[in-house]
Amino acid sequence: MSGVMRSAGAARRLPGGQGDPGVPEGDTGQNRTVRRALLDAALEVFTERGYTDAGLTEIAARSGIPVGSLFQHYGGKRGLYLALWEEFREEQERRTSATLAAERSRGVDDPIALFVAGARAYLDGAWDNRRLGSLFAQDDGPAGFDALRRQWDRAWVRRNARLLEVDERRRAGRVRVSVLTTVIGGAARELGDCGDETEAREIVDEVCGILIRLSVRR
């Protein structure tokens, strides 16, 4: 598993190790179509109204899927939100992993160069998927989501420490990686408010420069 990214595979696991209820086994073409329609509608409503004020009736109406099917596939509003989060995480993981693999295949083995390349890929993904990124940056999610996100944050820091070859037993090293990871996360949130792609690219370039300077050991 690459660094830079937060853990993607745990999105169906809730705090305490419980699985997300309501997601059926099996994945027929019809089920995929129904789930896509529900997730697209949920993203629209969550973005417009926030998680707390979003209504399942409105989500079902916009998707054209009965409320009963919504519960069958996702178990309710919380399941929809977590599924959107998982989708965002998985796409970011795919993007950063592909970037790191390509860099290594070119012979790049410098830890800082790899870290910054992965960070750029992550930030590019945050811009491309800014509607989802902006949704998860809000302090308005389902119960238990903050604890789950903190768990992912800790895993993200650990992966970045391995990528940067930092000794996690040393407090100074842990703090440095935590700061670098926080810089990436903060920049990703800023990208959600960018007016256009030119501004977004300027931010990504600036942040990557900051990461290089902060990563170099004095």
Results as ranks from 00 to 15, higher is better:
residue 38 L to T: 03
residue 44 E to G: 12
residue 44 E to P: 12
residue 45 V to K: 09
residue 46 F to D: 07
residue 46 F to L: 11
residue 47 T to Y: 02
residue 48 E to H: 04
residue 48 E to L: 10
residue 50 G to M: 14
residue 51 Y to L: 05
residue 53 D to Q: 15
residue 54 A to F: 05
residue 54 A to W: 06
residue 55 G to Q: 14
residue 57 T to Q: 09
residue 58 E to W: 08
residue 61 A to R: 14
residue 61 A to N: 10
residue 61 A to Y: 05
residue 62 R to I: 13
residue 64 G to N: 02
residue 65 I to T: 14
residue 65 I to L: 09
residue 66 P to A: 13
residue 69 S to T: 15
residue 72 Q to A: 10
residue 73 H to N: 02
residue 78 R to V: 02
residue 79 G to P: 12
residue 80 L to V: 09
residue 81 Y to T: 07
residue 84 L to H: 15
residue 84 L to M: 13
residue 85 W to Y: 15
residue 87 E to K: 14
residue 89 R to E: 15
residue 93 E to T: 12
residue 93 E to Y: 12
residue 93 E to G: 11
residue 94 R to V: 04
residue 95 R to M: 05
residue 96 T to N: 03
residue 97 S to F: 07
residue 97 S to E: 13
residue 97 S to G: 12
residue 108 V to Y: 01
residue 110 D to S: 04
residue 111 P to E: 00
residue 111 P to L: 00
residue 112 I to C: 03
residue 113 A to I: 14
residue 113 A to N: 12
residue 115 F to G: 05
residue 115 F to L: 12
residue 118 G to Q: 04
residue 118 G to S: 04
residue 121 A to P: 09
residue 123 L to T: 05
residue 124 D to R: 15
residue 124 D to Y: 10
residue 127 W to C: 00
residue 127 W to P: 00
residue 129 N to W: 05
residue 130 R to F: 01
residue 130 R to T: 01
residue 134 S to K: 05
residue 136 F to G: 04
residue 136 F to Q: 03
residue 137 A to K: 07
residue 139 D to F: 11
